[in-house]
């Protein structure tokens, strides 16, 4: 019996070694990039000829914090290029003549997320699992009241997630009384922030390109 248990323990160890290598996930910050667009299907984007786009981005930061505006001109420039490519004309004044048909507001926010890990951890299991085989005195597995439970340890990581969002709406349709803005099209780029400015610029450019590519309805067709 002891010999058989030893064989079981050995083979379980081998099998766990073979299978416990949990499949991968995101390796680079760019792997976390997500582009989301949403629109009002009843809105006729073909009627847009002039748009208002501010030179600045609304940074949502903690009170007393100073927003980092390093990338503002870069982002605004990319959006302007894409909007102009639709045949629309930019106005930098909300009371310009002709009056802009739509306004586009751009916002940016950085949020710190925290992960808590429990070791050992095998994906898909609701609790830690550690087989024990020690001589002939005892054996068991955790949470079952046999042997010596193995609780592992815990560690915490954090990462910054950046979000860039823009919203297109008609100023004439804003419900001032109820403070409602009816957004006709929205684009969002979301991902884990890296430390390299050039890499961030590449990711923003790819994200904005993708947002317009997956919004073919903007051309009014």
């Amino acid at each position: 019996m002891k010999y058989l248990l030893f064989k079981i323990g050995t083979l379980v160890g081998i099998v766990f070694t073979l299978t416990a290598c949990y499949p991968g996930g995101a390796e680079y910050t760019s792997d976390t990039d997500l582009v989301v667009t949403d629109y009002n299907p009843d809105y006729d984007f073909g009627d847009i000829h002039y748009y208002y786009l501010s030179d600045s981005i609304n940074h949502i930061v903690e009170e007393d914090d100073t927003p980092d505006r390093t990338l503002d001109p870069f982002v605004i420039g990319l959006l302007e290029d894409q909007l102009n490519a639709l045949g629309w004309e930019r106005s930098t004044d909300t009371i310009a003549d002709p009056e802009p048909d739509v306004s586009i507001v751009v916002a940016a926010i950085t949020v710190t997320n925290y992960n808590i890990y429990q070791i050992p951890w095998y994906g898909g299991w609701g609790w830690g699992w550690g087989w024990y085989y020690k001589g002939t005195d005892y054996w068991g597995y955790p949470g079952y009241g046999w042997g010596y439970p193995y609780y592992g340890y815990t560690y915490v990581t954090s990462y910054d997630v950046g979000t860039l969002a823009w919203f297109l709406f008609e100023p004439d349709k804003v419900d001032i009384e109820d403070e409602l803005i009816f957004v006709e099209w929205a684009g969002v780029i979301n991902g884990v922030l890296g430390s390299s400015t050039s890499s961030t610029e590449d990711r923003i450019e790819r994200g904005i390109d993708q947002a317009f590519n997956q919004s073919s309805y903007l051309s009014g067709e």
């Binding site: 997500l34 582009v35 009002n40 994906g123």
Partner: peptide, 28 residues
């Protein structure tokens, strides 16, 4: 039995109602 399936879909696009999502998906 314990079986784990996994697949990475790079730059996959999918729609939900009027929204379109594009990003690398990791399916398990």
């Amino acid at each position: 039995t314990w079986s784990t399936f996994y697949e990475k879909l790079g730059g996959a696009t999918f729609n939900y109602e009027n929204a379109t999502f594009t990003g690398t998906q990791y399916r398990y």
